[in-house]
Design a protein around this nucleic acid. Structure first.
Lengths: 105, 105
DNA sequence: TCACTAAATAGCCACATGGTTATGTTTGCA
DNA sequence: TGCAAACATAACCATGTGGCTATTTAGTGA
């Protein structure tokens, strides 16, 4: 079965959510469980504004959950498939480069 | 284990290869087996130049194979994980939208 | 040598977006 | 009320790249 242009666009859009290092870094942080925006910011090397922006993209893509708690907003992984996707890609990269320590997401 | 900036960039780069509808369309065509560039062009609605360009990106990403045969160049899927990736994403989209006919890549 | 086909490349433009700084908005507390 | 903290948004810039047209390169056959 072949996907039409519209369906391909939706698939591409989902992949696009994973196509930036900053968003992957955020996902990586959330792997351990829910985190507030500022906790994420503290772990990364970019601005709070940028983290919020990327979190919104992940949220719009349906990949993360969002929950207000007092003054904070907690984000978490909404889709277990996120980890499956990352594993597949890491495995491929490890296969390509047999030298360095295997990547594990 | 956390990936560093360089490793995240490589992971993102691989996802980026899947983040465009035209490249997904090419992958979809190649699912049935090797095809020449002009065969692919005939199936899509974009120019030969663009198909060559996108094929090069897929090739550089290590996702497709390339083989000269007479005057033609045959491309094929190099990584079975390509289909696993697409399946995971399609499943997620199907889960989100219960209405239309399930996508299957 | 010339003509033709297949594929790749170059040059160009328009658009999307990652990142920044600055500003809003909401909530909790003195 | 006022202030400060936590997030979100706005406005802007620089870069990357999808797509096009035009050209180049390589292989085939007359």
């Amino acid at each position: 079965m072949k996907l039409n242009a519209d369906q391909l666009e939706r698939v591409a859009g989902l992949f696009r959510a994973f196509a930036e290092p900053t968003r992957l870094a955020i996902i990586q942080e959330l792997k351990g469980g829910e985190m507030s925006v500022s906790e994420i910011v503290d772990q990364l090397t970019t601005s709070q504004a940028n983290v919020s922006k990327q979190l919104r993209m992940l949220y719009d893509a349906g990949l993360v959950t969002r929950r207000k708690q007092a003054t904070q907003v907690l984000y978490g992984i909404a889709e277990p498939m996120v980890f499956d996707l990352c594993s597949l890609v890491c495995d491929k990269l490890n296969r390509d480069a047999r030298k360095p320590a295997p990547l594990k997401f």
